[in-house]
């Protein structure tokens, strides 16, 4: 048996932090933890994965894996699971991770727990906690299967360094160009010097109270001062002040930063769904009764156009 596998999320050789989070957490279950990486020219990633405890790094290196595509990735992973028989395979709950996980689970007729915020695996069984009804309830899900399958939400596990052997296992490539049935005509990267919303340690978001691009610019200045990401409520996105990819909430992204700053956001239940699990929450709102204050550690009743500039000055001191 090949222990617990962590499927590595990477693009152009940059490993996403959630991969290290999963590697770190999986050490707690006692089974051997290994990383699985598909790509083109990715063998060099092994030392970075070993730093977080990967005993082995299974590498499938081929042109067909240069970018994510469902057909080739599913074919490859299915062949590897059949050959090495891992006890569990964990994926990040990203667009690619959840696509691959659901597809392979169905192919192998397995159960799958998605978007998990807590996990424990032992004796061929996984018990996972999922946040349901947009965070208004929690469900503990038991997944028995061979292997146990789950996708994990970014930002919920701590990254802990622990040296692993990082032995590279070059696996036979089982996928060919014939397995690719999606034609990706164009990839348009989000160009931003700021960290990815779902991975950022600090997220500053603006809402309708920002009243326009000028208000959002203040939120951006504040975020930059802390090396944070910028997000918005649906009202800010619908008004066109921020791109769709910046929406935080039930229909947007779920964020889990150390610090979340909500400026001019009322705190509708659908917004809270995307940010209420942040470790610390600061809200700035003119309305003393705004529901956002119900989840805030510090709720400043005031005008963001006055408070944020003063806060920027204060932080710079």
């Amino acid at each position: 048996m090949a222990g617990t596998w962590i499927f590595v999320e990477q693009r152009n050789g940059n490993i996403r932090k959630v991969t290290f989070e999963m590697l770190s957490e999986a050490q707690k279950w006692g089974d051997e933890v290994s990383a699985v990486v598909f790509g083109k020219g990715v063998a060099g990633l092994a030392p970075e994965l070993a730093k977080y405890g990967a005993a082995k790094v299974y590498v499938a290196d081929a042109d067909v894996f240069a970018q994510y595509n469902t057909g080739a990735f599913v074919a490859q992973l299915a062949a590897m699971i059949a050959e090495y028989k891992p006890n569990a395979v964990l994926f990040a709950h990203t667009f690619n991770g959840r696509d691959l996980a659901a597809r392979i689970s169905q192919k192998l007729e397995l159960g799958l727990a998605t978007d998990c915020i807590a996990a424990e695996i032992s004796a061929g069984k996984g018990v996972f906690t999922r946040s349901i009804y947009a965070g208004k309830a929690l469900a503990k899900v038991e997944v028995a299967g061979d292997p146990v399958m789950a996708t994990i939400r970014a930002g919920v596990f701590e990254v802990v360094e622990k040296a692993g052997a990082g032995e590279v296992v070059n696996v036979a490539v089982a996928a060919t160009a014939a397995d690719v049935y999606q034609n990706v005509k164009e990839f348009i990267p989000t160009v931003s010097a700021r960290p990815e919303l779902t991975e950022a340690d600090v997220v500053c978001s603006g809402g309708r109270g920002c009243k326009g691009p000028e208000g959002i610019a203040l939120v951006e200045q504040l975020a930059d001062l802390m090396g944070g990401a910028v997000g918005g409520s649906r009202a800010a996105i619908d008004s066109g002040w921020l791109g769709h990819e910046y929406q935080v909430g039930q229909t947007g992204k779920v964020v889990n930063p150390t610090l979340y700053v909500a400026a001019g956001i009322s705190g509708a239940i659908q917004h809270l769904a995307g940010m209420s699990s942040s470790k610390y929450i600061v809200a700035i709102n003119t309305d003393e009764e705004a529901p956002i204050f119900g989840v805030s550690d510090v709720g400043a009743v005031g005008d963001l156009f006055k408070v944020i500039p003063a806060l920027i000055d204060e932080l710079k001191k």
């Binding site: 007729e109 799958l112 018990v127 929690l138 028995a144 929450i281 003393e288 989840v295 400043a300 003063a310």
Partner: peptide, 25 residues
């Protein structure tokens, strides 16, 4: 079904912290 929900719970309500009023500074 291949999976089973063994427990439902409600998340601990996040205690509202401090509300502060006053001058922007």
């Amino acid at each position: 079904s291949k999976t089973k929900i063994v427990e439902f719970s409600l998340p601990a309500a996040k205690a509202a912290g401090k509300k502060v009023t006053g001058e922007p500074a």
